[in-house]
Design a protein around this nucleic acid. Structure first.
Lengths: 128, 128
DNA sequence: GTGTATGCAAAGCTTTTGCATAGGT
DNA sequence: ACCTATGCAAAAGCTTTGCATACAC
């Protein structure tokens, strides 16, 4: 049976507080400000639990590695700015599933990552 | 200056021979059948060189990790079959870039991974 | 002959796991 | 009181790096 622990509460709290995709070391660091003893292994174990229970979802960032975000958010894409290195969440789903899936294939889900320069970085570049 | 070596020749040969996305351990194993002494570190160093020179491209598979494929191939998506675990290359690009990119953002590239069941696995499942 | 690329081994990361024990129920 | 979840430390991938030497030029 799944027990309620202050550690898992803290980990979930981190996501509620930050409301953006997070890396494991960020979760650990922020979580420790809530529960001092919080351990790396505990974070990994709870992330796995939370993904399995459907509370979290993993994102696979080509450069930054694995990120986690709340699963309740609607399906969306991610945009990585190569200038400021931030990750943005893009609303909507612009993939034509029928066109992208060959006959006979069943697509159950997809992950999209875009790369480029975000609007604020472009504005800065234009000024120079 | 970049010297020609039998090791890099072999690594490139592996891609020409297999003509599909490959993992590092596959490249090492197949490459060793061509150059017995081929070393892991050499593979990693040459993969980096070949990516930088534009001969190879990396794919970031959410489960299998990093894969490499020849860069000369046209832009395409990847499909991972959760039943047989194979990775398929899907022709074409069905993403509406304008729709998926917010105003002010410059999208320079994107990576798409689809998950589901491939046609042959579906056929097998249907028979049962 | 000169200097880069290789092989080998060690080290760095990220993630997982074994084990004793604290703590939720 | 029971037994799961935690903390700690070690281990297990994957990738990078330092160093002596082989070999491409």
């Amino acid at each position: 049976m799944k027990r309620k622990t202050v550690q898992r509460d803290a980990i979930q709290g981190v996501f509620l507080k930050k409301n953006r995709p997070l890396k494991v070391d960020e979760i650990l660091e922020i979580g420790r400000s809530m529960v001092e003893s919080l351990n790396q292994a505990t974070v990994y174990r709870n992330l796995k639990l939370l993904v399995e229970s459907g509370w979290l979802r993993t994102i696979h960032h080509p450069y930054a590695g694995t990120l986690y975000e709340r699963a309740e958010k609607a399906h969306h894409y991610h945009f990585h700015c190569r200038s400021c290195d931030r990750i943005f969440e893009l609303p909507g789903c612009a993939l034509d599933k029928r066109q992208s899936t060959p006959p006979g294939f069943l697509a159950e889900g997809h992950e999209v990552f875009l790369f480029g320069v975000c609007s604020s970085c472009r504005a800065v570049a234009a000024k120079r």
